[in-house]
Simulated assay, not measured.
Amino acid sequence: MTDVLGDNLTTSQLGFGGMALTPVYGDADPAESLATLDHALDIGVTFIDTANVYGGGANEELISKVVAKRRSEVTLATKFGISGNPAAGERATRGDRAYVLQCVDESLGRLNTDVIDLYYLHRLDPNTPIEETVGAMAELVAAGKVRHLGLSEVTADELLRAQAIHPIAAVQSEWSIWSRDVEAKVVPTAAELGVGFVPYSPLGRGFLTGTVDATTLGKNDFRRQIPRFADGAIDTNQAAVDTVRSVADAVGATPAQVSLAWLRYKGEQFGLSVVPIPGTRRAKRIDENVASLSVVLDTAQLATLDGVAASVAGARSSDATWVSSGRE
């Protein structure tokens, strides 16, 4: 159950998005979170993704408890570059060399490891040339602190400029049945360069699973900041869930499994490695996600799913420049 991203980075075919283990979607139980991480490794989901900004470092510290006892099993990814708190609407970024060197040491300490397998620039700093940021990240590879480099929410041009400085293993951006803007430029460029793609929120921040009632989200739930979850959009977007569910019923799968399988087929279509990183707090959801690897969709079903995004209401971010499509 392995895949190969760019720069010969081998990962599991599905990864695990650690942000869900931080209370951005409501309260999280640390004991349950650790049990879920252990279960993920037990069944072969070994690509674990976190970031220094999740929980102000608490997410890295939580994941370190599993890393400490099972480091050899884990392909460990973390990120830097967001200096504010996105959950509170703060979108400050930094990418200068001094900050790169500071952040990696802080993450290594919180993760209690001596090397990070994949180190991402979480968001571009508009005041620092990407060449400077990636150049500093390349120093980390030379120093043995990082094995591979990644970029999150970059445009095709930014990816090309970064690749000219150092091989990029992966681009991480939102990509799902209801978020397809990356297919216009970023995905084709990644395929051309041999860079892998790591879709975050492949289940539409849970909405595409059909298990989320947006009208009952807690007051601290991060999704309240996303236009697609606003009162004026959510009823319209229920149609997306209904379409996914109709295909799922036809193939004997769940909406989550169909959503992940759709991304697998998209990777084949564009000719690049695609490793989604759905997040969850519950072990049973990991079993469900892994079963998506055996879901088969025919041409008509794929066409039906391809039509969903055109009718989705609301942007995927309240700040267009925060995502790559707003800067293309």
Rank of each mutant, 00 (worst) to 15 (best):
P276N: 13
R205H: 07
G6P: 08
F207C: 00
S325I: 12
V186W: 05
L5I: 05
E73C: 01
L62N: 09
A191Y: 10
V4H: 14
R245G: 07
T50W: 02
V258K: 01
P199S: 02
I286V: 15
E328G: 05
E61D: 13
L124S: 07
A169F: 04
D181H: 07
A256E: 07
F80V: 12
N59M: 08
V4T: 15
I43T: 02
L149S: 00
I168E: 00
V74N: 00
E73S: 10
G150M: 01
G232E: 14
I286K: 06
G109C: 13
E328C: 05
D125P: 02
T215N: 07
L160Y: 01
Q163L: 06
P199L: 12
A156H: 12
G26C: 01
L62D: 04
A303M: 05
I177S: 07
A31W: 11
P30F: 07
S72H: 12
N52E: 15
T78Y: 10
D49W: 03
A87T: 13
W178N: 04
A58S: 15
S201N: 01
P188D: 09
Q225I: 11
R245S: 11
Q257T: 01
L111T: 04
L76K: 09
L5E: 04
R282W: 12
A156S: 14
T155Y: 05
A313L: 09
G135L: 01
F222H: 02
V24P: 05
F229G: 07
I168L: 08
R147I: 10
V296L: 12
A303N: 15
E131H: 02
S292A: 15
T75E: 03
P23N: 06
A92I: 03
S318W: 02
G267N: 08
D27E: 15
S325F: 10
L34Q: 08
D221R: 06
T236G: 13
N289V: 11
L34V: 10
K65A: 12
V275A: 03
R282F: 12
N127D: 10
T50L: 14
T93Y: 03
L5W: 09
P188A: 02
P129E: 10
L124T: 11
L208D: 00
I43S: 09
V141Y: 01
I277E: 05
A191P: 10
H39G: 11
V195S: 00
T236H: 15
L151T: 07
E192T: 15
V154G: 08
